[in-house]
Design a protein around this nucleic acid. Structure first.
Length: 647
RNA sequence: GCUGACGUAGCUCAAUUGGCAGAGCACCUGAUUUGUAAUCAGGCGGUUGCGAGUUCGAUUCUCGCCGUCAGCUCCA
């Protein structure tokens, strides 16, 4: 190595250093305290660690704990420290990969007996020791032959090394104390930088993500730069657990499952009320300009052959025996699209009808693998708020604007915010490259025209077209992918869909696939967790619970309940032979938004002592008519809970 | 589907090395008539997920199946 490199520091000053200088020496020359505080450096925005020789010049930024790029470096080093601890306690463990991930890091091991929770505790304690030993991370660059020797006992690493055959990639190893790993880096300077971390769980994971390869034991962990950040993260995990829709669904009596129908929901009376409210709201929003339709649930396979699903997705379809042929020639629909094309093509359409919007709430079935099922979020039978829009190319921009407004407005009703993602052509796709160019160009243009910010998700589109995904953030900061707007130039060809243009000739329409909630099932799961079960009044299965203090006021309470119900309020009378305290407690536990208590004073004055959910003793006495006006007003405006959704 | 863990009353959980399956809540009955988060007493409630095996004896040990959970894979 020879020559000189020019480094430009953030303040504009420059440093001339010989090629191959270690960043550590450069940082040390700036200041010894900066060296202590540095996790890595960025040369021309490329992150590398302090132990890797500089091979090029450019802008030179020291990454401290104020730089978001520090955390992944720390976490990756955390993975090595985890492996160091595991190897000390279980020397026979073979090592796989140990990367940083969004919420922390993991490391994969090949062991004869899987790890137990006790093992995790021991590993964590050992990691504390490794960190205390302040072992430096030593980087070495080695030849392929040398690497093969070093990792001769680690078959997984040898397999990884084989990938380097014939490339000029630099092979590097990192050593901290007794542990050597084949690794590109970057790493922190020594093990003492890992201070705030926790091992979370262990689970099987296929070697290299391939279900045909052996299963390794993965240990998940998280780490942060600061103690309060770690605590906040762990708090979010427990908060998520407290809000778990499967637990709340049971507690609030919303839904159930039964092993005779795995992956299919039984909605109770209360749960059904929520489904119906959501459906009613969507119907209201789509009253004008949409055509609600219902199509069959069961189809001959010929349809799926045309749509292309029979070949690729038959595994995930519920097949039904045809009595005549004795074959599984029929299938429950896993999506609505083809049935809407059939409806469209059943008659001639004029350009004057476009955009033509078919929307539906039909039930769909997808035969998910058993291990994928999870509460309401991943089911085999679900109801999608689906819509297919047939339109001319010239209408795309307006329609996309209209749809994004629609979807964002819908989320806003629940206090949910969304980020837009633009997803482009995937590896596996149908349609020509010209078609994709046109579709991606048109959708991107339409997206730009909305003026909304978005991020790019290259290669994440549907197999028939590019899409805009709506990534929603809930009240505890978790992200969910819900709505989608997909542009489709391919299926109009495949199903030979046409409309008659102004010129009296047949033209090809474009299709937009749109979903807002994704599915009612999953959306309700998200809402349960978002609101922690304390739904806004309009969505609450039980909106008011009327509590007469004693039997003497029962008749009056019945009249009040009747008046509330006549006003369209879901009100229930609780006349159980229990104390008022008992019944109040029950109402709070069931998260009923309002409890209306009636005693002597209220019965005489025709008022109610109103207790609002979660506000303790701050009840107020209001005339019945005023209370009815207030609640119906909140229902009509779909107001969010006044005490907020975060609780 | 794969790896691992789990499955006991409607719910949440107990049950010492294999030895009569329990508690709280819920539910039912009675007393009590209650002023803002659990009134008291009594009672009902179980083929321990299902099916085999080992054993004098299985909730407990072994195997198979079903389901649930954490991940992996998948998610049109």
């Amino acid at each position: 190595m020879n020559g000189t490199l020019t480094l430009v520091l953030p303040d504009g000053a420059t440093r001339e250093v010989p090629m191959g200088t270690l960043p550590r020496d450069v940082v040390a020359s700036i200041g010894p305290r900066l060296l202590l505080a540095s996790y890595a450096v960025a040369v021309d925005d490329e992150v590398q660690d302090l132990m890797t020789p500089l091979r090029k010049g450019g802008s030179f930024v020291v990454i401290t704990d104020k730089d978001p790029r520090a955390l992944p470096v720390l976490r990756h080093s955390g993975a090595h420290i985890l492996a160091t601890a595991v190897r000390r306690l279980r020397p026979e463990a073979k090592i796989g990969f140990g990367p940083a991930i969004d919420d922390g890091f993991y490391y994969d091991f090949e062991v004869d007996t899987p790890f137990t929770p006790d093992d995790l505790e021991a590993f964590e304690a050992e990691m504390v020791k490794v960190a205390a030993e302040k072992l430096p991370f030593v980087r070495e660059e080695v030849t392929q032959a040398e690497a093969l020797v070093r990792f001769s006992n680690d078959p997984l690493k040898l397999e990884r090394l084989a990938d380097f055959e014939g490339t000029d990639e630099i092979i590097s190893t990192y050593t901290d104390g007794p542990f050597v790993d084949l690794c590109r880096g970057p790493h922190v300077q020594d093990t003492s930088y890992l201070k705030h971390f926790k091992l979370l769980s262990t689970a099987g994971a296929y070697w290299r993500g391939d279900e045909k390869r052996q299963m390794l034991q993965r240990i998940y962990a998280t780490a942060f730069l600061k103690k309060d950040e770690l605590e906040a993260h762990l708090h979010q995990l427990t908060e998520a657990k407290r809000r778990d829709h499967r637990v709340l669904g049971k507690q609030l009596d919303l839904f159930m499952f039964h092993h005779f129908a795995p992956g299919a929901v039984f909605w109770t009376e209360r749960g059904t009320s929520i489904v119906n409210e959501l459906n009613g709201y969507l119907r209201e929003l789509q009253r004008d300009g949409y055509a609600e339709i219902k199509t069959p649930l069961l189809y001959n396979k010929a349809l799926w052959e045309v749509s292309g699903h029979w070949g690729k997705y038959r595994e995930n379809m519920f097949l039904v025996l045809d009595k005549e042929t004795g074959e599984h020639d029929f299938s429950l629909k896993p999506m609505n699209c083809p049935s809407h094309y059939l409806m469209y093509s059943a008659k001639k359409h004029s350009y004057r009808e476009l955009p033509l919007r078919y929307n539906t709430y039909d039930v769909l079935h997808r035969n998910e693998v058993s291990g994928a099922l999870s509460g309401l979020t991943r089911v085999r039978q679900f109801q999608q708020d689906d819509c297919h829009i047939f339109l001319m190319e010239s209408q795309i921009a307006d329609e996309v604007k209209r749809l994004t407004d629609f979807i964002l407005n819908y989320y806003n009703t629940f206090g949910l915010t969304a980020n837009l993602k633009f997803a482009t052509r995937p590896e596996q796709r149908i349609g020509t490259d010209e078609m994709w160019d046109a579709a991606e160009g048109a959708l991107r243009q339409a997206l730009e025209a909305t003026g909304l910010p978005y991020t790019l998700k290259a290669g994440d589109g549907a197999f028939y077209g590019p899409k805009i995904d709506f990534d929603v953030t809930d009240s505890i900061g978790r992200h969910w992918q819900l709505g989608t707007i997909q542009l489709d130039y391919s299926n109009p060809e495949r199903f030979d869909l046409t409309y008659t243009g102004e010129d009296n000739h047949a033209h090809r329409p474009v299709i937009i696939h749109r979903a807002v909630s994704g599915s009612f099932e999953r959306f309700i799961a998200i809402l349960i967790e978002h609101f922690a079960g304390a739904f806004p009044v309009w969505l609450a299965p039980e909106q008011v619970r009327v509590l007469p203090i004693a039997d003497d006021f029962r008749a009056h309470a019945e009249r009040v309940t009747r008046a509330l119900r006549d006003a369209g309020i879901r009100a229930h009378l609780d006349v159980r032979n229990e104390t008022l305290n008992y019944r109040i407690r029950d109402g709070e536990t069931m998260k009923v938004p309002y409890m209306a208590v009636i005693g002597k004073r209220e019965a005489e004055a025709n008022t109610l002592a109103v207790r609002e959910r979660g506000t303790g003793n701050k009840q107020e006495v209001v005339p019945v008519s005023e209370f009815i006006a207030r609640v119906t007003g909140e229902i009509r405006s779909r107001a969010l809970p006044s005490q907020g959704v975060a609780e």
